[in-house]
Amino acid sequence: MHSKHYFKVFILVVGLLVSCNTKEQKKSNQSIKLEHRYEKLLSYKVDSLSFPRSMSLNPENVHKVPSKDWTSGFFPGSLWQIYKLTGDERYKERAAAWTALVENQKYNDKTHDMGFKVYCSFGEGLKVEDNQFYKDVIVESAKTLCTRFNSNVGSIRSWDFNSDIWEFPVIVDNMLNLELLFEATKISGDSTFHKIAETHANTTLKNHFRADNSIYHVVVYDTISGAPKMKVTHQGFNDESTWARGQGWGIYGYTMAYRYTKNPAFLKQAEATAKFYMEHENLPEDGIPYWDFNDPAIPNAPRDASAAAVVTSALYELYGFTQNKVYLYFANKVLNNLNSSKYLLDDTVNGPFILNHSTGNWPKNDEIDEPISYADYYFLEALLRKKAL
């Protein structure tokens, strides 16, 4: 009896050791894969007209854009974040070189995407080093962004195109650009930036959310009365559908706005928006959403890893404010799935990207099921936020 008992214990212990070793080996393999992808970003040549935005894989071709493109800040921001993850000075040096090329955008008043461009680059650099030049660029960019604020509407204008139909369009994505304004007040002491950001967040809170806490992509306002006159989409399946990344912008935007304001209404909305997303019947088991929750082609619709990365990063911060482990467990699950062979870009692909399977603009058949720079940025931010826990 004793020998059988010891044999069973021996088998159990061996099984546990093998299981642990397998898990450790799997984790080690993923780290190696990530390191390989990081090197691809490092080896990409610095060029002011060639910020990598996305990449087609058949044939392989990097979509390059100048600094005026709304995505230009994500690549330098990713390099800053890789430096923080690895401590490798090479990434810091390359991040600084790319960041410097975004400076010319600080006076660009034709765009609301100042936060995406400037804060994701200069702001990430400022987290690494106390650099007065970076602070000055952030404050100047915030001044420029404030010129697009309309006090009647209580919002920052998003787009200038389609003006014959859209009098004053505001997109939910614009919530992410408020971080630049909040930080500009912290840097300068000028409360104007903070007040404009909080006003914009309150206006969006009032008009962008449906009763079920899903989000309208675009709300068009009357500039005289300040009232909404249209609620439509530009990148979703239709006006009443739920565009996955737009839902992600809402979760992230209101979690971030709560960080700066401690307004409980912002935290409440972040949680309600996250609940809608996490519990949606059309969300796949692995947590990486279809590009739009209401695409009738589901389950054959394209996924959007960028939406998953945005939400995952946001949920780590939301967990920090609420200590609700539902957010932590969900974020860990999705981050592990993103950090797997299914979603990491294959090592054989020679492009400066980390994740595959993102969807940019489905209605225009643009950047469908391919690597996109902002997916990488929020994926890396999620890795850093998890590490900070």
Score class of each variant (00 low, 15 high):
17 L>Y: 04
297 A>M: 11
227 A>P: 08
340 S>K: 00
68 K>V: 06
169 P>E: 07
355 L>A: 02
247 Q>T: 12
1 M>D: 11
177 N>E: 11
88 D>G: 00
150 N>V: 00
10 F>Y: 09
261 T>M: 12
374 Y>L: 02
39 E>W: 14
389 L>D: 11
383 L>W: 07
230 M>I: 13
374 Y>T: 03
293 F>Y: 13
155 S>D: 01
225 S>F: 09
322 T>E: 07
47 D>N: 15
206 K>D: 08
346 D>F: 12
113 D>A: 01
153 V>I: 07
214 S>V: 15
257 A>Y: 01
200 H>P: 06
93 E>S: 10
142 A>M: 03
325 K>I: 07
235 Q>D: 13
198 E>P: 02
236 G>I: 01
239 D>I: 12
195 K>R: 10
199 T>W: 05
113 D>E: 07
202 N>C: 05
137 V>M: 00
82 I>L: 10
162 N>M: 11
26 K>L: 09
6 Y>E: 13
53 R>M: 06
221 Y>D: 13
304 D>K: 10
65 V>H: 01
171 I>V: 14
128 V>A: 14
239 D>M: 14
369 D>P: 05
323 Q>Y: 12
146 C>H: 02
96 A>L: 14
16 L>K: 01
377 Y>R: 08
313 S>H: 15
203 T>P: 04
274 A>T: 10
170 V>E: 04
5 H>I: 12
144 T>Q: 14
175 M>P: 06
278 M>R: 04
324 N>L: 09
10 F>G: 14
34 L>G: 01
160 D>P: 05
204 T>W: 04
71 T>D: 00
42 L>T: 06
267 L>I: 03
101 L>W: 03
205 L>H: 11
7 F>P: 02
38 Y>L: 10
212 D>C: 14
322 T>W: 08
76 P>W: 03
167 E>R: 00
76 P>D: 05
284 P>S: 10
95 A>W: 08
289 P>T: 11
340 S>Y: 00
320 G>C: 09
135 K>F: 12
117 K>R: 15
127 K>H: 05
308 A>R: 04
204 T>F: 10
157 R>S: 00
97 A>W: 03
241 S>W: 09
304 D>T: 08
144 T>E: 13
375 A>R: 06
234 H>W: 02
16 L>D: 01
163 S>P: 02
68 K>W: 06
134 Y>G: 03
329 Y>F: 06
365 N>D: 15
138 I>W: 06
260 Y>R: 06
285 E>P: 06
285 E>H: 15
147 T>V: 14
95 A>Q: 08
342 K>E: 14
348 T>V: 15
190 D>T: 14
242 T>I: 05
92 K>R: 14
106 K>Q: 15
316 Y>V: 11
46 V>C: 08
201 A>M: 07
158 S>E: 00
5 H>P: 00
288 I>T: 12
67 S>D: 11
15 G>D: 08
359 T>S: 11
11 I>G: 11
146 C>Q: 05
178 L>V: 02
258 Y>S: 01
101 L>T: 08
